[in-house]
Write a protein that binds this DNA or RNA. Structure first.
Lengths: 344, 344
DNA sequence: CTTAGCACTTAGCCTTATTGAGTGCTAAGT
DNA sequence: ACTTAGCACTCAATAAGGCTAAGTGCTAAG
């Protein structure tokens, strides 16, 4: 267990390091701590903190830098979310436009706002859609041999794609086919749609000669739905924290952040309201200098979603946690407004 | 006018510099030129080339580096497109998959192929669509107060977007509205659609209370169509040529390459079959180290499109020009196959 | 016109101070 | 038993000097 003074020193080291980004020495702390103690005493305390693994030196005669374990300790025990002042809250609210045509826009906007306020990279996930089922399926002819396939999900999202029919199919055939598909898959959870259709191929063969192509279309549409589950704001801000000149790292980061699976693994939110992952707790080694704060938001029967912030390990956690705490409520309330306006 | 020997020297400097990336000195050239002359003679010739502005020194006692003007001269007068060997052609053809659901996929694929073959950044534009008009307009109800608006263009592309009706509108009202819009804008060039609708607001007011929102939707859909006019492959390869550590340049490049207008200005193709822009001929100063080769392709009545390659100024022009010359034909032929298969 | 020879220039690299911030340890003070 | 002044020591960062390799321009002779 740490003494009061040790806690103060740890906290001061972390705060200073967040500000200046350079190791903090005993003299600097001497000037700064609330109580007065000599630098020699501080040195002694710091060597205790170092033995506990909470701070490190960059070399044998440098000042101290918080270790990842130190940040962990700080986040778990010391950090207090900063309250959001009224002005900031106001500016968040005005930043959100007023009219939304799609729920996606709300999330894209919140990622944008979050990144602009912090100069970090922000990620906003749509509400978890594990209970989403296929609500409607239509095919709309668009000229001779071209149809638009439209899938409507129970969460209100709609995906569509044009595709060309390889063989001529008459209007009646098309209708019949649509009926078959409607019977088979409408009402199923979207994860099962493709599997179920696969089983129904014998039936479909009455109407289409290459049901494979047709299945592809479903697969594509649903993939697309899965890919558009999240929105990123301030992607470029990520680059501010690479060790300068490391083009390889930049490439890795960039290819990382565009893929849903990677991002999702990265966050791996355990359901806590607010979760902080620091440096090596992020599975990807290119992110050793980064921390990720994620916050879930709750939109009642529409499920739970998540917003997250990716910044350097030495970010101002209390400020960021406070901000994220506010933003998650804002996002939830915007989404609920949106759903309410149109559900009924 | 340059002598034969001067041409050979210029060409050798450019080729060497493409290979090694370091300034080329007189002794290195002495070993390499087809005829034998002493390094002193080469020095004399090089100083002529320098007076003409075709080569530069990096400092007073360094070897020579081709200047942008030198590259220009080389490209205009000396470069011969390399023939594509059979194996490469074969691999291009197999890289293109066989089945395409949308013409977009062909272009996305060709940008991909081009970037993988060159390790540069490739851009593929859809055929110029200035003659495209709005062919069909539909509104499909998707539940209580939600409709899907679908616009079909004469070039076969289709754009759709869901939107929520702010007030309840009855089925008949919707139908009537659709009829009005159909009368007013179907058949018009897409560039005029929004303007025309604006004029028709009085008419629409019979059916919709906020035609502004409705116009927004049209605007959005058409914007989206404009934005998806091009595809980029190997975006990350761009980063291989920034002066190391210049994060600002990376950011500029990245925000540049995502915007249609910027890319379009950049290429500013004058209609030539193959066009090369070198260094400062590219308007953006972040691209001083880059060259851009663009090649148009022709798909008859469907217009002309363009593929382009963005690489370092010291790229192997003859190879790249040869490659682009082949690829444009491949793209055109794939697209024509695609159009033919479905037009009739 | 070409070439050998020579004096000169420069980047890159290596080595060697110099400085400043910081540490650990010891011994004296409370 | 803590705390603190003092001191010797360490290390990164910077600057300054020297050396080398590659290259140049110029001159004078072939």
């Amino acid at each position: 267990m740490l003494t009061e003074r040790q806690l103060l020193i740890l906290e001061a080291i972390i705060q200073d390091y967040t500000d200046v980004g350079r190791p903090i020495g005993s003299k600097a702390l001497e000037r700064q701590l609330p109580m007065h103690v000599s630098s020699a005493t501080i040195r002694n305390e710091m060597s205790v903190l170092e033995r506990l693994g909470l701070v490190n030196k960059e070399h044998s005669s440098s000042g101290r830098v918080p270790s990842l374990k130190g940040y962990r300790y700080y986040v778990d025990n010391l950090v207090k979310p900063d309250a959001i002042d009224k002005q900031t809250l106001e500016s968040i609210r005005t930043s959100f436009g007023s009219q939304f045509f799609k729920s996606d826009e709300i999330l894209a906007e919140s990622a944008q706002i979050l990144s602009e306020m912090t100069n970090y990279t922000a990620i906003a996930f749509k509400p978890e859609s594990k209970d989403v089922f296929l609500q409607g399926f239509r095919v709309m002819p668009m000229g001779k041999q071209r149809v638009m396939v439209i899938l409507a999900m129970s969460d209100g999202t709609v995906e569509s794609q044009i595709f060309n029919l390889p063989k001529h199919i008459s209007g009646e055939e098309l209708e019949a086919m649509v009926r078959v598909i409607n019977d088979q898959v409408v009402g199923l959870p979207i994860t099962q749609v493709v599997d179920k259709l696969q089983e129904s191929i014998p039936l479909l063969l009455h109407y289409v000669h290459q049901p494979g192509g047709f299945l592809d279309v479903f697969g594509r549409i649903l993939d697309k739905a899965a890919q558009d589950q999240f929105f990123i704001g301030g992607k470029l801000n990520m680059l501010n924290f690479v060790e300068s000149g490391d083009i390889e790292q930049i490439k890795t980061l960039y290819s990382l952040i565009d893929r849903y699976d990677d991002i999702n693994d990265l966050i791996g939110n355990s359901g806590e309201n607010i979760q902080v992952k620091i440096g090596n707790e992020l599975t990807n080694s290119s992110l050793a200098n980064y921390s990720l704060i994620s916050a879930t938001y709750d939109v009642n029967q529409h499920g739970k979603g998540l917003i997250a912030l990716l910044g350097p390990t030495n970010m101002p956690y209390s400020k960021m946690i406070g901000l994220l705490g506010t933003l998650r409520e804002e996002v939830a309330s915007r989404l609920l407004d949106y759903y309410n306006a149109y559900d009924e």
